[in-house]
Amino acid sequence: MSSLERTPPYLQVVGTLKSKIVSGELAHGDVLPSVRELAAEYGISTATAQKVHRTLRAEGLAEGRQGAATTVSTRRTLHRTAADRLEAALTTGRIYADGEYAVITGADLTTPPEWVADLLGVEDGGQALRRQRVTHNADAEPVSASTSWFVAELAETVPALLQRERIPGGTPSAIEAVTGRRAVASEEASAADAATEEQATLLGVEPGAPVLLSRNVYVDAQGDTVEVGESVAPARRWRAHRS
């Protein structure tokens, strides 16, 4: 029996809808299929379909009022991970969901932290290309502040990485278009922490407020590093995992 077959039917449907929500196919404010529509489409009972709605509401991905349709709710509740954004870039050509936008706050060549240098294969004292941004939702609220790191050679081959302008399709697409190297998978680690003064300013929270720190690596089909990233996001945002 496969893991999918062992998964309760309502969680299988929840997983399908989560994937659509995280990718942006179902955007904030979109109406979710009704209980009857879910039951008919997925061959489940109405009681099971009601459990799907309850689960999505409990996880902060949907909201509903008595007598009204259940709608997607993500602007203040969802944290899109590096894996989510890579999947969106690979499948849709867009790295941000509808309404999201990034403000590029820095792009330069500098000495990277030791952990970044190790992942990129940068020798001691060497430089790496750094690209910094703050991502906002459709309400113009900051949802994350992030830094992407690349080997310094890309400054010449992909000069857009050194410009303080958004790159349509994201950095993985820009690198692939020039070099042919395609990021196909990601690894990510996260930890809770307290916001520094700089992080608090970027995210619009108080210094010392809880935040989520993440480090990620995009790799190509050969397992070689394409991009290294680090980000910080406010608390009380759900990460939705797909399996």
Rank of each mutant, 00 (worst) to 15 (best):
R85L: 10
S73V: 10
G64I: 00
A83R: 03
A47K: 14
E25H: 15
R54P: 09
A88W: 00
G24P: 06
E87C: 06
G93Q: 00
A69F: 13
T55D: 07
L78V: 05
A40M: 13
A27N: 02
D98N: 12
R80W: 11
A68G: 10
E41Y: 11
A40H: 11
V35M: 09
T71Y: 07
T46D: 14
E25N: 07
A89H: 03
A58S: 15
A88L: 10
R85C: 08
E87H: 12
A83P: 03
T48M: 10
E59G: 07
R80A: 07
A89C: 02
Q50H: 15
G67S: 07
Y96P: 01
P33V: 05
G43R: 02
D84M: 05
G43V: 06
G99C: 01
L26K: 02
L26N: 03
A68C: 13
Q66W: 14
Y96F: 13
T70Q: 05
R76S: 13
V31I: 12
R57V: 15
D98L: 14
E37G: 00
G99A: 05
A68D: 11
E25M: 08
T71R: 15
I44H: 04
V52R: 02
G64N: 05
R94S: 11
R54F: 10
D98Y: 09
T55K: 12
L78I: 07
G67R: 02
R65I: 10
I44R: 04
L78Q: 00
G67C: 04
T91E: 15
E41G: 03
R75F: 14
G60E: 03
G43F: 10
V35I: 14
R65N: 08
G43M: 09
E63N: 08
I95F: 11
V31M: 10
R75Q: 09
S73G: 01
V31Q: 14
L86C: 02
A69D: 12
G60C: 07
T74S: 12
D84V: 02
G60R: 01
Q66D: 11
L32D: 02
L26H: 00
H53C: 01
E59A: 11
E87V: 10
G60Y: 08
K51S: 15
L61W: 11
I44F: 13
A97Q: 07
R36H: 12
Y42M: 05
V31T: 15
L26P: 04
G99T: 05
R85Q: 14
G43H: 07
T55N: 06
D84A: 02
L61K: 02
A62W: 03
G67Y: 15
Y42T: 01
D30Y: 10
E25V: 13
A47H: 11
A62V: 06
Q66R: 14
R36W: 11
R54D: 14
L26Y: 08
S45D: 14
A88V: 04
E37I: 09
G60T: 02
G64V: 03
L56D: 00
E41D: 13
T55L: 04
K51Y: 11
L56G: 02
H53I: 09
R76V: 07
A40Q: 13
G60W: 09
A89P: 00
T48E: 10
H53Q: 08
R57D: 08
A58R: 11
T46H: 15
V35C: 05
A27Q: 06
H28M: 02
L86F: 07
R76P: 05
A82V: 05
H28G: 00
